[in-house]
Protein backbone atom coordinates (compact mmCIF):
# COMPACT_ATOMS: atom_id res chain seq x y z
CA UNK A 1 0.00 0.00 0.00
CA UNK A 2 2.62 2.52 1.08
CA UNK A 3 5.02 1.44 -1.65
CA UNK A 4 2.21 1.85 -4.17
CA UNK A 5 1.60 5.40 -2.92
CA UNK A 6 5.33 6.15 -2.98
CA UNK A 7 5.61 4.98 -6.59
CA UNK A 8 2.66 7.14 -7.62
CA UNK A 9 3.91 10.31 -5.92
CA UNK A 10 5.28 12.64 -8.59
CA UNK A 11 8.77 14.10 -8.75
CA UNK A 12 12.18 13.15 -7.37
CA UNK A 13 12.83 11.88 -3.84
CA UNK A 14 12.67 15.24 -1.96
CA UNK A 15 9.46 16.16 -3.77
CA UNK A 16 8.04 12.73 -2.97
CA UNK A 17 8.90 13.22 0.72
CA UNK A 18 7.10 16.58 0.69
CA UNK A 19 4.11 14.95 -1.00
CA UNK A 20 4.08 12.14 1.57
CA UNK A 21 4.18 14.63 4.47
CA UNK A 22 1.36 16.59 2.85
CA UNK A 23 -0.75 13.44 2.37
CA UNK A 24 -0.15 12.38 5.98
CA UNK A 25 -1.09 15.83 7.28
CA UNK A 26 -4.27 15.79 5.19
CA UNK A 27 -5.22 12.35 6.53
CA UNK A 28 -4.58 13.39 10.15
CA UNK A 29 -6.54 16.63 9.70
CA UNK A 30 -9.48 14.73 8.20
CA UNK A 31 -9.52 12.29 11.13
CA UNK A 32 -9.08 14.99 13.79
CA UNK A 33 -11.50 17.59 12.52
CA UNK A 34 -14.13 15.55 10.66
CA UNK A 35 -14.21 11.84 11.44
CA UNK A 36 -13.36 11.82 15.17
CA UNK A 37 -15.89 14.52 16.14
CA UNK A 38 -18.56 12.66 14.17
CA UNK A 39 -17.72 9.26 15.67
CA UNK A 40 -17.28 10.59 19.21
CA UNK A 41 -20.99 11.12 19.87
CA UNK A 42 -21.76 7.50 18.97
CA UNK A 43 -19.50 6.10 21.67
CA UNK A 44 -20.65 5.64 25.28
CA UNK A 45 -17.31 6.64 26.89
CA UNK A 46 -18.62 9.74 28.57
CA UNK A 47 -22.21 9.32 29.61
CA UNK A 48 -22.35 11.58 32.61
CA UNK A 49 -26.05 11.91 33.35
CA UNK A 50 -28.30 9.70 35.42
CA UNK A 51 -31.30 8.48 33.45
Amino acid sequence: MYSWIWRHLPGRAPVKVAGAVLLTAAAVAFLWFVLFPAVDGLLPFDDVTVE
Binding site: M1, L31, F36, D40, F45
Partner: peptide
Amino acid sequence: TIGEVLVTLGLVVLLFGAYEFWGK
Protein backbone atom coordinates in the same frame (compact mmCIF):
# COMPACT_ATOMS: atom_id res chain seq x y z
CA THR B 1 -0.52 -4.99 2.37
CA ILE B 2 -2.56 -6.54 5.21
CA GLY B 3 0.25 -5.75 7.62
CA GLU B 4 0.42 -2.15 6.48
CA VAL B 5 -3.35 -1.75 6.82
CA LEU B 6 -3.27 -3.17 10.36
CA VAL B 7 -0.39 -0.89 11.40
CA THR B 8 -2.30 2.07 9.94
CA LEU B 9 -5.47 1.16 11.86
CA GLY B 10 -3.41 0.89 15.04
CA LEU B 11 -2.05 4.40 14.49
CA VAL B 12 -5.56 5.72 13.81
CA VAL B 13 -6.80 4.25 17.11
CA LEU B 14 -3.85 5.85 18.96
CA LEU B 15 -4.67 9.17 17.32
CA PHE B 16 -8.30 8.77 18.39
CA GLY B 17 -7.14 8.28 21.97
CA ALA B 18 -5.17 11.52 21.73
CA TYR B 19 -8.25 13.24 20.30
CA GLU B 20 -10.45 12.03 23.15
CA PHE B 21 -8.05 13.51 25.67
CA TRP B 22 -6.61 16.66 24.08
CA GLY B 23 -8.74 17.30 21.00
CA LYS B 24 -12.03 17.48 22.88
